[in-house]
Design a protein around this nucleic acid. Structure first.
Lengths: 339, 339
DNA sequence: CATCAGCTTGGAAACGTTTCCACTTGACGC
DNA sequence: GCGTCAAGTGGAAACGTTTCCAAGCTGATG
C-alpha cells in the first residue's frame, strides 16, 4: 500500500507543509500561485489526505453515525437512504450500523461510533437506557433519536404520532362492522411497540370494541412472529375478523400465514399494516396501511442533528400518521359470520 | 464534549501510558496487577480509545467499507446485512455506503473510504473503470468486487453465474409454448446488466425463440423503468406472452404496470424475475424467480477480502443461479392467442 | 556472589495532519 | 522616509495513540 503524505505534496509543490495544508483545507490565506502549484502536485501524486490524522488534529470527522435496528426492514432501508442523502448535502458522510434488533450489537456499534469520534449520531434505539447509549449522553456527543426513543434518556427526537393513524384504522374497521380486531403488537421493549399498543387499546376501547386479551399477540417486529401470531389468533374459538399489524415485516409473515391457511385477506379477514411499504400495494388485494413520511423523518433528523452539533437544542418533532385504505380492509363484515 | 485520554487512565491507574496501552491492546507483556488497575480506571472513567489516533499510529482501522449501488433494493439490503454480520465475526466493523446508482456518489464514497484508510473495500461497482476505483487499485488497497465487476479492473470477485438460471427460465417458458419472450434488461453500464442480457439472447437463440429486437427493452434497475418497459412491450402489435425481468425493483414496476393495464400475471402474461425477494412469493399468483444465494455471496466476499488483506490472492468465485418455478409462469400459452 | 534470562516497565519517537506564532514582504498613508 | 498594516509563508507544537528501546527487577544458575 503506497502511502503519500502532505510532505510529499509540499515537496513537489515547492512550498511548506503548512501552506499545503492551508490550500487543501480552503484557508483563504494563500496565494494563487501556491494554490495552483499545490493542486497540481495533488493531482500528479493522486494524494488523499489521511482522514485519521486530520480528525485527530481538528476534532471534526465530517461523519455522522446512523444506527438502525434492521436494514432489511424496508422502512429502515428507506430511512437510511434519506438520512444519507440529506447528510451528504451538508458534507457529512454517513456510517450506517445495523443493530440487528439486538442490544449487544447496538452497543457494539455505538462504542465504535464513539471511538471513531463521529460528529454526531442518529439512532433508532432499542432496549432500555443502559449500556453504551449512556456513554453517548455522558460524553455529550451530539445525538438524536429517530423513529424510536428511550424513556429516561433526554435527547431530541423525531418520531411518528401513531395515535392518529391507529385511531383512523380502528374507526375504519369498526365502521365496517368489525367488533373483534386482532392486534399483532411490536415488542414492548421498543417505544414504538409500546406506543402503538397503547394507541390501539385506547382506540378500541373508545369505540367499544372487544378488549379480549386473547386478541392481542406480541411479536418482535420480525416476519416469523407475524406468522405465529396469525396462527394463534385465527385458531381462537372466537377469532378476530380483522387484523392490525404493528410493522411491515410482521405483516409479511402474517399474510404468508393467512395464505397458507387457505384464507384470503380482505374477504376472509381484513388486514391493516403499519408502514407504507411499496409491495403491500401490489398484493391482491392491496393492503391498507398506516403511512408516515420516511422522507420527512430522515431530513428532519439530519437537520436536528446539525443544530445539536452547532450547540443548539432543537425541539422534538412528532410527524403525523394517516390511514391509507385499500381493498384488504374494504369489505364489510359478513353478518352470517358474526355472532 | 468531555474528552478522556489514555493519559488520564494511566494517571488514575498509577502506571505509565505505555503500560496502559499494552493492557488495552492485549499485549501479553503486562502484569496481572497492571491489568486490573488499568481496567478499573477504564471503567471508572468510561474511557474509549480514540480510533483515529490508534489507526494513525498502527495503520489498521479494523473497518471495511461496503459500497452498494442501492440500499433500497432488497437484494443489496440483504447483502449489506450478511456482509456486516460476517465481518463482525472477524472483528471488522462495516462502513456502508450507498452509491444510489450514481457514479459521482460512488466516487465520493470511495474517496471517503480511502481517506478513512479502511482495511479493505467490498464494492458492487457501477460505471467503467474510471474515477476513484482507479485510485483504490493504484494504492493497492485490499478490495474485492461483489455481485458486479468492472472490465479491465483486475480485482477478485464473487458474482452470480446468471447463465444457468436464465437458461432454465427460458427453457421453462419455451416448454410452456412461449415463443415471444419480452426481456426487461438492466443497464448495459453494469456487468450484471450486460451478462444477463447476453445470457438471455444466447438462451433464446438456442431455443429458436424470437429475437425480435422490439422484445428487448433496457431499463435502469429501478421500478419506473420496469413500468415503462411493460407499457412499451404490451403495446406492441405482436406483444410478448412472457416477460423476464433482470432485477426485482424493475419487476416491482412491471407488475404494477401490468395490474394497472387490467391484466393478470400468470394467465395474461407469464413473468419471471431475477432475485429471490421475499414478497414476490406473496403475490397472487406468486412470482417465479431466478434465485441466487445472498448469504453465500456476502460470506465469501468477506472471506476473500480477509485473504487479500493478509496478502493473499484469492480466486474469483461464481455462484450458481437457479430457477424457482411458481404460478406466475405455470400456465401454458393459450393456443387461441398465438398466431 | 556475579551473571543471566525473562518479565515488566517507562520514556520518547513516530503516525499525518492542523494551527499557533513569528516572520518577511510590499503597499499605503502621513 | 517612516511606521503601520495586511497578506502570505514556514517552523514547530499539538492531537492521542502504538511501539521501539533501554532499563529495572526477580529468581535461578554457575
Amino acid at each position: 500500500m503506497v502511502t503519500i503524505t502532505i510532505k510529499d505534496v509540499a515537496a513537489l509543490a515547492g512550498v511548506s507543509v503548512a501552506t499545503t495544508s492551508r490550500v487543501l483545507s480552503g484557508n483563504p490565506a494563500t496565494s494563487a500561485d501556491a494554490r495552483s502549484r499545490v493542486h497540481a502536485a495533488v493531482a500528479e501524486l493522486d494524494y488523499r489526505p489521511n482522514a485519521q490524522a486530520r480528525a485527530l488534529r481538528s476534532t471534526r470527522t465530517h461523519a455522522i453515525g446512523l444506527l438502525v435496528p434492521d436494514v432489511r426492514n424496508p422502512f429502515f432501508a428507506d430511512l437510511a437512504h434519506t438520512v444519507e442523502q440529506a447528510a451528504l448535502v451538508h458534507g457529512f458522510v454517513t456510517l450506517l450500523g445495523n443493530a440487528n434488533e439486538r442490544k449487544d450489537q447496538q452497543d457494539r456499534y455505538l462504542d465504535n461510533l464513539i471511538a471513531r469520534r463521529v460528529d454526531g449520531i442518529i439512532v433508532a434505539p432499542l432496549g432500555d437506557g443502559s449500556g453504551s447509549i449512556r456513554s453517548v449522553v455522558g460524553r455529550e456527543i451530539p445525538a438524536v433519536f429517530i423513529d424510536r426513543t428511550i424513556e429516561g434518556i433526554d435527547l431530541p427526537s423525531v418520531t411518528t404520532d401513531s395515535d392518529t393513524g391507529i385511531r383512523e384504522a380502528v374507526d375504519h374497521l369498526a365502521a365496517l362492522g368489525h367488533t373483534r380486531i386482532g392486534y399483532i403488537a411490536g415488542p414492548q421493549s421498543t417505544s414504538t411497540g409500546r406506543e402503538r399498543y397503547a394507541s390501539f387499546v385506547r382506540a378500541a376501547g373508545d369505540r367499544g370494541l372487544s378488549l379480549d386479551p386473547a386478541l392481542i399477540v406480541f411479536g418482535d417486529f420480525q416476519p416469523e412472529s407475524g406468522s405465529a401470531a396469525v396462527r394463534t389468533l385465527l385458531a381462537l374459538t372466537e377469532p378476530p375478523t380483522a387484523l392490525l399489524v404493528a410493522d411491515s415485516p410482521m405483516a409479511f409473515g402474517a399474510i404468508g400465514a393467512i395464505q397458507k391457511l387457505g384464507l384470503r385477506i380482505g374477504t376472509d379477514v381484513a388486514l391493516v399494516s403499519f408502514d407504507d411499504i411499496d409491495w403491500l400495494a401490489l398484493l391482491d388485494p392491496p393492503v391498507s396501511v398506516i403511512a408516515h413520511s420516511v422522507a420527512d423523518m430522515g431530513r428532519i433528523a439530519v437537520e436536528m442533528l446539525r443544530t445539536v452539533i452547532d450547540g443548539g437544542r432543537p425541539e422534538s418533532v412528532r410527524l403525523p400518521s394517516r390511514l391509507v385504505v385499500r381493498a384488504s380492509s374494504a369489505t364489510p363484515v359478513d353478518p352470517s359470520r358474526s355472532r
